[in-house]
Design a protein around this nucleic acid. Structure first.
Lengths: 149, 149
DNA sequence: CTACAGTCTACAGCGACTGTAGAGACAAGA
DNA sequence: TCTTGTCTCTACAGTCGCTGTAGACTGTAG
């Protein structure tokens, strides 16, 4: 709360989190309710920028909002020990490792598809054939698969 | 349409796509409206299984539903040439490559975090410090980051 | 005949935002 | 002072790709 209070737009720039996203974080209890100016505008101190940066970084690292809530709760109870946080990071690490492995498999298959393409007509397109053929080869866990064409 | 018609449950099992998902694909125009029995149950031929397998495989490879719609459209106009499909696969491949690179960066950072953890109190937890510190280091493109704790 | 599994429609919910509408607030220039 | 333009406000709908629910009907095996 030290230092002059900043509007939401300022901390948005400072932390690299969109204004709407900050309000969203407030609405789901990640950010706590800030002071308001007389006219009702949110006013934040530098600690809000820290917190937002923390959240953003954790999100960039793939932590879910729920997980981040837990991390923040742990953070604010300093008598707890580090083990829970370490465990979370390890889970996250394992998760990332899995995702990398899955993506590498996809990469290999896509490379095969692209290599086998010889620019013929669609009727003989190896890419489409490759997509159609594999009835059973794909992984069975239907995890996140969100890539645009 | 050859062969005896199958109910939605059968093609669900055959293609490895959930019943509800099949109906969803129909609702968004990925699957086309099947015949119905007298009592109103959907009846499919073997081609539906093929189509579903194609869709599932493409989804597993990370193609968006929109992209798959395009691929199917291309498939059904065989006079088009393979180039568009090849381009889509290449875009997809580049996309997967990027995602792998990003995940590897995350992996490295998470490894550093976990290595630096010495099981102390939260107040001195290197993992939390690591999460808090990096104000600017994270990537600027806010792509998908969906991993649970 | 009786269970019970399968199917139907319609709609709400998920996560993590993003976009919209319509209104009010504030800072800088003419 | 007025104006212009950028911020900010609330509240809610939309995004994507499904998943789950409710309540009714249908089909099949014992």
């Amino acid at each position: 709360m030290r230092g002059k209070p900043m509007t939401i737009g300022r901390i948005s720039k400072a932390a690299g989190v969109k204004v709407t996203t900050i309000r969203y974080y407030e609405s789901i209890g990640l950010m706590g309710t800030p002071d308001r100016s007389e006219s009702g505008q949110r006013l934040y101190g530098g600690d809000a920028v820290e917190r937002l940066s923390f959240i953003r970084h954790a999100r960039d690292l793939g932590f879910s909002v729920d997980s981040i809530r837990d991390l923040i709760a742990l953070q604010t109870t300093p008598q707890a020990d580090c083990a829970a946080i370490d465990a979370a990071a390890r889970r996250q690490l394992a998760n990332v490792g899995e995702r990398i492995a899955r993506l590498r498999a996809l990469e290999g298959e896509l490379e095969r598809m692209v290599r086998s393409c010889e620019g013929g007509a669609v009727a003989t397109c190896a890419v489409l054939a490759s997509l159609a053929d594999h009835d059973q080869c794909a992984s069975d866990d239907h995890g996140p698969r969100d890539i645009a064409l």
